[in-house]
């Protein structure tokens, strides 16, 4: 662990020198509109950001599957939007056992001074994350897959309180059925249909992330020809979260998961240091 720490520290310093700033020009468009078209970024300068296999905590990937991600950004004075593209040879939305989703995350410090550790922040120095998943986008577009979608040849006899002929069971509520769905019964957002493809998350260190209810951000991904292009947009000022101010530098971090290659959770490729985000003033 100590070796990993020093290695990360050295690479972090290197990254600080090598990383290019992201420029977010101002556009006369409403970036809060969903979905945002990619051509809003046509004037934005593209930067190539280097990623590497998350090195800090196990379990972690042994190799860097996504060595780089291309980033463009624009803002409209109220919202900021990012276009993130990276190579991934297969589209993965998770579903069956042992299948994971492609995903990307943007990380922002909640406070700029002092900057929290880029690796998920630390206690009392939180970070604010926008986490887009192909799985969540599928949820929003088609609803979460039913078991019969995932396993068409499966023939379960019946599920509790769920019969074609409800008969005297007319009074059975969804809440009563959810008792047999442990994740839902415990109120886990993961178990419900995602209405947004983007989760907003607070974290104060590895393993501490928790989802923010009623997220304001939105996102949309498109996979073609072996590449993902994901647009993520957020208000400049997130309630109780990070605040970006035009004309003042901000910071971002990035992470990518290739679900088809079993990347999930801490198995991800990440930026090793904060990248400066320069937003054009009013």
């Amino acid at each position: 662990m100590r070796t990993a720490f020093w290695m990360a520290a050295i690479l972090s310093n290197l990254g600080a020198h090598l990383g290019a700033d992201i420029m977010a020009g101002k556009v006369a468009l409403d970036l809060s509109v969903q979905p945002l078209k990619e051509d809003v970024f046509k004037e934005a300068k593209e930067e190539v950001v280097t990623l590497m296999a998350q090195p800090m905590v196990a379990p972690r990937p042994a190799t860097t599957l996504t060595p780089e991600i291309r980033v463009r950004a624009v803002h409209d004075g109220h919202w900021i939007a990012f276009l993130l593209t990276w190579a991934d040879t297969e589209r993965s939305e998770a579903g069956r056992l042992g299948e994971f989703s492609d995903a990307v995350a943007l990380e922002f410090p909640v406070k700029e001074e002092p900057l929290p550790p880029i690796f998920m922040g630390t206690k009392d120095m939180p970070v604010h994350l926008l986490h887009w998943r192909a799985q969540y986008q599928r949820d929003r577009e088609k609803g979460p897959p039913e078991m019969k979608d995932l396993y068409p040849n499966m023939n379960p006899d019946m599920y509790p309180m769920d019969f074609k002929d409800q008969g005297k069971l007319q009074g059975i509520s969804e809440e009563m059925r959810e008792v047999y769905s442990h994740g839902k019964a415990a109120g886990n957002p993961q178990s419900y249909r995602k209405e947004s493809a983007v989760d907003e998350i607070f974290a104060e260190g590895f393993g501490s992330s928790s989802i923010i209810h009623n997220p304001q951000s939105h996102g949309e991904g498109r996979w073609s020809d072996g590449r993902w292009a994901v647009v993520l947009a957020r208000p400049l000022a997130l309630v109780n979260g990070s605040v970006l101010v035009p004309g003042q530098p901000g910071h971002i971090g990035l992470a990518v998961w290739q679900g088809g290659q079993d990347e999930v959770g801490a198995r991800k490729c990440v930026t090793m240091s904060w990248i400066t985000l320069l937003m054009a003033g009013e």
């Binding site: 379990p59 998770a94 994971f100 078991m147 442990h182 994740g183 109120g187 886990n188 178990s191 959770g265």
Partner: peptide
């Protein structure tokens, strides 16, 4: 059940394979 995000790390790591992923609840 309220905190798990279905990463499946427990499914991988338990040598006795007594953690199981629920594809319906995704935990």
């Amino acid at each position: 059940q309220s905190r798990c995000k279905g990463y499946g790390e427990c499914v991988r790591a338990c040598p006795y394979k007594k953690s199981m992923y629920n594809p319906a609840t995704r935990v």
